[in-house]
Design a protein around this nucleic acid. Structure first.
Length: 639
DNA sequence: TCAATCCGTATC
DNA sequence: ATACGGATTGAC
């Protein structure tokens, strides 16, 4: 039995007796209720055994909840591996992996399963990628290839994913596709319906009600469907005979689980591909440093388009530094649009919709060089510098290791003056509208996302990730969020900037059809260059090289420990950590009553770091330490 | 000498 | 967490 108890020191199986009446129901994987330390708790049957190693008396389980074996041996192995990787408990992972039961749904008669054989699909769009046809063939033949795919700009990627899913089904196996949000689930769902026909796939996303969610999850578990597309928590979906797992746009923050133990979809799927002998596809318009690391270690192959295909599909991209000549037009000046951006938008509006990407509100101010605008970094650990207290007087300090940076000088230009970068100033749709009189303006943001726009000339003002997908491609796009993105106090600022720009640029028509993109940022900096040349792989390789130099993930394994200072110190004291461990900090975080400590080890010691922290958390929870401490491995946010 | 309380340990 | 037991302390 695995009992649903959040305590780290109780993260192990417990044996119970099965009463005779429950013999048929309490099958391995089924849900039960048991008395544990005097109270009733939920649990899962891991296995039925003839005897027990336990020296003391055994209790009978109180109730068998249902005979549905929701926790398969494969899922148990995966959840255990994820818990170990992230220094968490099996119970925490199972809570993410298995949806709440819905009795009425469970009792419904099983739907007819459509298992007509699927024909091996032609390579289609995959022949635009070096190694693409081979990848597809390997999947169709029952192999388990692993690849990192940089997709061509344009609307083709959902169809490519559907083709890969069809190849998996043709091999008699199942495909699991994980995308960042519900909008992408719908897009890929449409492509799957086109490729496989109706009723052959299932869409799992968080916004389904409990009944529908459990209904679809059960259909997957019972093997009624072989193609699954879903968001984050679907990465644990109990797919039978897994042949291929896909993580689309692995740089998107939505792939990082915000609940303990904070697993990342890409890591879960990589573990799963390994454990269940399945193929793996990590794809996107760009490539993350993690993706580059998978290729560098030869664990995965690259699936990259030819330069000719890129030239044919990519829009023309220009950079316009903010300080360049502003448009002559008075209204355009009011909107602070550089001349080249304004004319690109004006020309684009003659033939179709124009996208304007603007930054979201609410970035934290950090420091940058007053002379050349390079972001200010700590000389010791290369963390971002910030002002620890409000107002002048407090010297800048590293946000990671806490080292004061009174002696800071810019490594780019030598200046010793730093300035706070106040970002997030959002050009409003109204301001932009005045620059283009007579043109309708639509907005799409986090709170109200516009799904699509037609081919009519319209200005679409959108924040990153909320760009409507136009039926005929945008005629042009202006990317106005350059500084906001690039000065974020984040290790991944440049990578994230390129990812967001590429996502917008990918919605623009090819250069040959007049498609144009203007990015308002310095044309000399790396992510801008990578966008102009449409070279996500070169960028990712550089990014990985830089992280290797700085010793940041994915080149190393990092753990963040946060909580009250005494509790953090307590956990650290209880930890048996590898000798290679390096401490950064602690530094105060939040309102000042909490702090965060970073621990850094070489990748080969990652498992030992996680195990040491898990054991220390177990010691603490056994001593009933009340003060909570959060342990996060390779945290997404370090700012 | 007995009971209320504290602390540590186990939880099948 | 919660429950139990053994040690400890304090009052009659």
């Amino acid at each position: 039995m695995a009992v649903d108890i959040p305590l780290a020191h109780l993260d192990r199986p417990f044996d119970y007796l099965v009463p005779e009446g429950a013999d048929e129901l309490a099958v391995p994987g089924s849900r039960v209720r048991v008395r544990f330390a005097g109270r009733l708790v939920d649990g899962f049957v891991l296995a039925r055994l003839d005897g027990s190693e336990h020296a003391g008396d055994l209790s009978f389980l109180v109730r068998s909840v249902s005979a549905e074996p929701v926790l398969s041996p494969e899922l148990e192995t995966l959840a255990r591996a994820v818990a170990d990787r992230y220094a968490g408990t099996l119970a925490d992972v199972l809570r993410l992996a298995i949806p709440p039961r819905h009795a009425a749904v469970e009792a419904e008669p099983a739907g007819r399963s459509a298992h007509e054989p699927v024909e091996r699909p032609p390579a289609g769009g995959w022949s635009d990628y070096a190694g693409g046809a081979q990848f597809l063939a390997a999947i169709a033949e029952g192999g388990r290839p692993r690849a990192v795919w940089t997709a061509l700009p344009g609307p083709g990627w959902p169809a490519e994913l559907a083709t890969a899913a069809a190849a998996t089904l043709a091999s008699g196996r199942s495909a699991l596709l994980i995308v960042p949000d519900a909008r992408d689930v719908t897009r890929v769902g449409q492509a799957l319906r086109q490729r496989l026909g109706p009723g052959r796939h299932v869409e799992l996303s968080a916004d389904l009600g409990p009944a529908e969610r459990y209904r679809r999850w059960l259909a997957v578990r019972r093997g009624a469907v072989r193609a699954v597309v879903g968001t984050r928590s679907a990465s644990f979906a109990p797919v039978t005979r897994l042949g291929l797992v896909v993580c689309w746009d692995d740089g998107d923050d939505l792939h990082a689980e915000p609940r303990a133990p904070y697993p990342h979809v890409r890591e879960v799927l990589a573990l799963r591909a390994h454990l269940e002998s399945a193929g793996l596809l990590v794809g996107g318009f760009v490539c993350t440093a993690e993706g580059a690391a998978l290729c560098r270690s030869r664990w995965a192959n690259r699936l990259a388009p030819s330069r000719a295909a890129v030239r044919e599909r990519a829009p023309r991209v220009n950079a316009s530094g903010e300080d360049h000549e502003l448009a002559r037009d008075a209204a355009a000046q009011a909107a602070r649009l550089p001349s080249v951006a304004w004319s690109a938008a004006r020309d684009g509006l003659r033939t179709g919709p124009v996208l304007i990407q603007v930054p979201r509100r609410g970035y934290i101010p950090t420091l940058a060089c007053a002379a050349c605008r390079a972001s200010a970094r700590c000389h010791r650990c290369a963390g971002p510098l910030g002002l620890p207290g409000p107002g002048p007087g407090s010297p800048p300090a590293c946000r990671w290791c806490g080292r004061p940076a009174a002696d800071w000088h810019c490594p780019e230009c030598g200046s010793t003056r730093a300035r706070a970068v106040v970002v997030g100033a959002r050009r409003t749709a109204e301001e932009l509208g005045r620059a283009f009189p007579g043109v309708p303006v639509r907005t799409s943001g986090r709170d109200e996302v516009l799904a699509t726009v037609s081919t009519d000339p319209v200005l679409v003002v959108a924040t990153p990730g909320a760009e409507p997908v136009p039926s005929g491609g945008y005629a042009a796009a202006l990317l106005l969020d350059g500084w906001a993105l690039l000065t974020r106090p984040d290790l991944r600022a440049a990578e994230e900037a390129l990812r967001r720009w590429a996502a917008a640029a990918a919605l623009v028509r090819p250069a040959g059809e007049g498609g144009r993109v203007v990015v308002v940022a310095d044309g000399g900096i790396r992510p801008v260059q990578a966008l102009i040349r449409w070279d996500p792989i070169g960028f990712a390789d550089d990014e990985l090289e830089e992280r290797t130099q700085l010793r940041f993930p994915p080149a190393v394994r990092l753990a963040a420990i946060s909580g009250a200072p005494a509790a953090v110190a307590d956990l650290l004291a209880a930890s048996d950590l590898p000798d290679s461990v390096e401490r950064l900090g602690p530094v105060p975080v939040g309102n000042g009553s909490a702090e965060r400590l970073l621990l850094r080890v070489p990748r080969r010691d990652g498992a030992r770091l996680a195990a040491g922290l898990k054991a220390a958390a177990a010691v603490r929870s056994a001593r009933k330490a009340i003060e909570p401490v959060r342990v996060q491995l390779d945290p997404r946010e370090l700012g």
